[in-house]
Design a protein around this nucleic acid. Structure first.
Length: 570
DNA sequence: GCCGTTTTCGGCCCGACTGTTTTCAGTCG
């Protein structure tokens, strides 16, 4: 996709300009444009063809011309010229924590270091010490940083992040000096994956909290330890940042520490236009009087806008919507009446239908789809005709006993290499709900995969398409599909697309899910539970749905059983 | 390089921590 190419080049230009020491605002313009284009659901191609590139935020005359040049030639002059001046390896050094553009340039200019490997050799041989501003400590940090970057500190799934954050909060919340403590950052925003854990605490005695934090049993290394802010690396190489502020500033600090960065910048710019200043301590006027600080709601109100839920804080139109009082009424966990994707021990799940039912009742559900795998997925003990009969009888019997919860006889059926279902029509029609999924042929072309899924949508017996892009964290990336085609087919055939809330999947992602809604497609959250405890992953599915601006009416999960059974018939 | 309910020029978010300094630049989020 051309967007990725454009974004990569703009990001590279930003890095190269940083090292050269260009105008920081110009550098940021490239960086912002890169982020903006990477996050777009639509292709920039048509915008260029219609001369509408400058309508995009952050794209002016100059960048529009560069985008056109990249579309036409695959690259742009400016980028090619910069690459000749600064070797690739110098840019790679920026990935080392602690090394920024100035330091990378220093090493390159003074010692002609052109790669991370060369940097390590130079550090070990003692060639770095003695450079301006470099002494022993800096050399040590460079070596530690390289070690870290080579271990590949990658993003973690949201469940892992929640557990790590929970462990830290659990240890610190019992301290007398901690008045309040809450995870912030991308975890609070419900992002699909998380890089660092950010935690915010309110206390009158920040030093005590800092001491307790860096002394936690699972801390391997302390990378920063100040009066109100510390960073540590856990034994699993996960970075955790803790910031401590006075309770009176908790709202302002939570807002700041939750981000996103782009959201914060936009808010602060807005404040400047109102002759105000925002920082983590509050909203201040020109005379340094604090106008709001205790709660996030108070701060948004002071800026003349509605409260923005954390999941929306990505600078994707939420600030404008909040000012016009047009934010969506986001779906909540309480609105959810059932789960569309759960496995039992009939196929590859760990628990019996009874155990799954008990867990679903605990969550207060009206219904639960037991979507065991279909016949052709042998590795997952997919069900043949005989075992389907047994399962059907089993579920009917259970439903006779259960009060308040209905187990739906369902399947996660295979979409074959040509887009057909692996069960024949007479079997498909026996299910209450048919969830169709691609589990094979990931390497087919984008066009072929799109055709398969479109064909599944058009199948009158298919109700939901599971995990539409097939990604699995961390090993398997999404396969490429033409979302426009799939959304068109899904909307036209009343087929729902799944938001798979399993932390290893989180698929559809927030951006395509929002685009699906805008294309008139209904969505259905499924947890893909293979264990009764996994039904709790609904929280992640709902978080994702909220990030996609979804309201109650956009999801099948919010329908009563009666309505659901009516709506789902095609 | 972008952008305008003060502006087509002159701004551009804001502060903590580190390591090296002795008042601050660089990095990070």
């Amino acid at each position: 996709m051309i967007n990725a190419r454009v974004a990569d080049i703009f990001r590279a230009i930003a890095e190269l300009l940083e090292i050269r020491g260009g105008n920081p605002f110009r550098i940021r313009a490239y960086g912002r444009a890169a982020d903006r284009i990477a996050a777009m659901q639509e292709d920039v191609g048509p915008y260029a063809a219609q001369g509408r590139l400058e309508e995009l935020e952050g794209i002016g005359k100059d960048l529009a011309a560069k985008i056109e040049e990249i579309i036409a030639t695959g690259s742009c002059r400016h980028y090619e010229d910069l690459k000749k001046i600064i070797p690739r390896g110098v840019v790679d050094m920026l990935a080392v924590p602690g090394i920024g553009p100035k330091t990378a340039k220093l090493f390159y200019d003074e010692l002609d270091i052109r790669s991370v490997a060369a940097l390590r050799r130079a550090a070990r041989r003692g060639r770095l010490a003695g450079l301006p501003g470099v002494r022993q400590k800096t050399v040590e940090n460079v070596l530690k940083g390289i070690e870290l970057v080579e271990k590949g500190r990658q993003r973690m799934d949201i469940e892992t992040a929640r557990q790590v954050a929970g462990a830290v909060v659990g240890e610190l919340k019992n301290l007398k000096s901690v008045k309040d403590i809450e995870p912030a950052g991308s975890l609070r925003r419900g992002r699909e994956t998380v890089r660092d854990i950010d935690i915010l605490a309110a206390s009158f005695k920040p030093a005590q909290v800092m001491e307790a934090f860096v002394a936690l049993p699972f801390v391997k290394r302390v990378s920063a330890h100040g009066a109100t802010k510390s960073s540590v690396l856990t034994k699993d190489d996960i970075q955790v940042d803790l910031r401590v502020l006075a309770p009176s500033a908790f709202g302002a600090a939570l807002l700041y520490f939750t981000g996103s960065k782009d959201h914060n910048i936009k808010l602060r710019q807005l404040a400047i236009r109102k002759k105000l200043r925002i920082n983590e301590y509050g909203v201040f006027d020109k005379k340094e009087r604090c106008l709001a600080s205790r709660s996030e709601a108070e701060i948004y109100a002071r800026l003349g806008m509605d409260f923005i839920p954390p999941e929306l804080r990505e600078d994707k139109g939420e600030i404008e919507a909040a000012r016009r009082h047009r934010l969506p009424r986001l779906v909540t966990l309480k609105d959810i009446r059932g789960d569309f994707h759960a496995h039992t021990n009939y196929s590859d799940g760990r628990n019996t239908p009874e155990e799954m039912a008990t867990a679903a009742r605990r969550l207060g559900y009206d219904y639960l789809c037991l979507t065991d795998h279909s016949v052709s997925l042998r590795v997952a003990r997919g069900l043949d005709k005989e075992r389907l009969k047994k399962k059907r009888a089993h579920i009917d019997k259970l439903n006779g006993r259960l009060k308040g919860l209905r187990l739906l006889f369902a399947t996660e059926a295979e979409i074959d290499a040509d887009g057909r279902m692996d069960y024949p029509v007479d079997i498909l029609r026996t299910f209450d709900v048919v969830v169709a999924a691609v589990h094979s042929g990931f390497k087919q072309s984008r066009a072929h995969l799109t055709r398969r899924i479109v064909r599944a949508c058009r199948n009158p017996d298919v109700h939901i398409i599971a995990h539409p892009t097939g990604r699995q964290w961390p090993a398997r990336p999404s396969y490429e599909v033409d979302f426009d085609e799939i959304f068109k087919a899904a909307a036209a055939t009343n087929t729902a697309l799944e938001i798979n809330g399993h932390p290893m999947r989180m698929d559809l992602g927030d951006i395509p899910a929002r685009a699906a809604k805008e294309a008139g497609v209904r969505l259905a959250i499924g947890t893909d539970a293979h264990d009764a405890a996994h039904l709790d992953y609904m929280r992640f599915g709902v978080g994702l749905a909220r990030r996609a601006w979804l309201e109650k009416k956009d999801l099948l999960n919010t329908l009563s059983l009666e309505k659901l059974l009516k709506v789902i018939k095609k």
